[in-house]
């Protein structure tokens, strides 16, 4: 097209590095997602605890975190908090921390809605059957809340995967980093960024399919 001649060879030559980079995006996302779910459940429990001293800070946390862009968080953790605490996070650690914290604000809201979505009658029934509060939550409320939360959690997972494409800005060698390297080495911007776009589409489609299967498998009769 016009004066530009396409050179796919560099992309093909470094396809291995691109795939390894994509894998970095995937595992950073998965680790952050699991951590964000754990943190999110804790915050959701604080919010539904019924005690103002717990509920209010949890509410403030969610509002605060959701108001700040992921990119700002990445820089804040990697450059800001690092000098404040005198800790040198690796770029990957900083990426996981930033993704986990931003993700947790969203998962917290989802779990809260999930817990709220379970019929109160279930808790009453569990209590009537002699369940303690904790046992009722673990065996009766949570399994149902988790199923309600699953579809929106899937959206968060995919959002986090898209967010993970940003981590190259602090130096994580992910697929975008590799693509930029190819561009710098061969001055072929179109091909590597197109390759990365296609890789991301494939990853998103893969995760969406996986989540649909999981939702079906867990659906209650």
């Amino acid at each position: 097209m016009l004066a530009y001649s396409y050179h796919w060879q560099p992309v093909l030559d470094r396809s291995h590095a691109l795939i390894v980079g994509a894998w970095v995006d995937v595992w950073v996302t998965l680790i952050s997602f699991v951590l964000a779910c754990i943190l999110g459940i804790a915050i959701a429990l604080l919010r539904v605890s019924g005690l103002r001293v717990f509920a209010w800070p949890a509410f403030a946390y969610v509002q605060l975190i959701r108001g700040v862009p992921l990119l700002v968080f990445l820089y804040w953790v990697y450059f800001g908090v690092a000098v404040l605490l005198g800790v040198n996070f690796t770029a990957t650690q900083a990426a996981i921390i930033a993704l986990t914290v931003t993700g947790s604000a969203y998962t917290a809201e989802i779990f809260r809605a999930g817990i709220g979505g379970v019929d109160v009658g279930n808790v009453e029934a569990a209590t009537a059957l002699g369940f303690t509060r904790r046992a009722a939550f673990r065996h009766v409320v949570f399994p149902q809340a988790f199923r309600i939360a699953l579809p929106p959690l899937g959206n968060v997972l995919i959002g986090m995967l898209k967010g993970a494409t940003l981590i190259s800005v602090i130096g994580v060698v992910d697929m975008v980093f590799v693509a930029q390297q190819i561009n710098l080495d061969y001055f072929t911007p179109f091909e590597p960024f197109t390759a990365v776009a296609l890789l991301l589409i494939v990853l998103v489609a893969f995760f969406s399919a996986l989540l649909t299967i999981l939702e079906r498998a867990l659906r209650l009769p």
């Binding site: 097209m1 016009l2 004066a3 530009y4 396409y6 898209k162 967010g163 494409t165 940003l166 975008v176 693509a179 930029q180 561009n183 001055f187 072929t188 911007p189 179109f190 960024f193 197109t194 990365v196 776009a197 991301l200 589409i201 998103v204 489609a205």
Partner: peptide, 24 residues
């Protein structure tokens, strides 16, 4: 479907560097 599948950063790179290079 296509435009929801990607992240903004990929678009920015693709439009600012990719398209700019390919289309001139």
């Amino acid at each position: 479907q296509v435009f929801r599948a990607l992240s903004l950063y990929i678009y920015v790179l693709w439009i600012y560097f990719g398209i700019a290079g390919a289309v001139g």
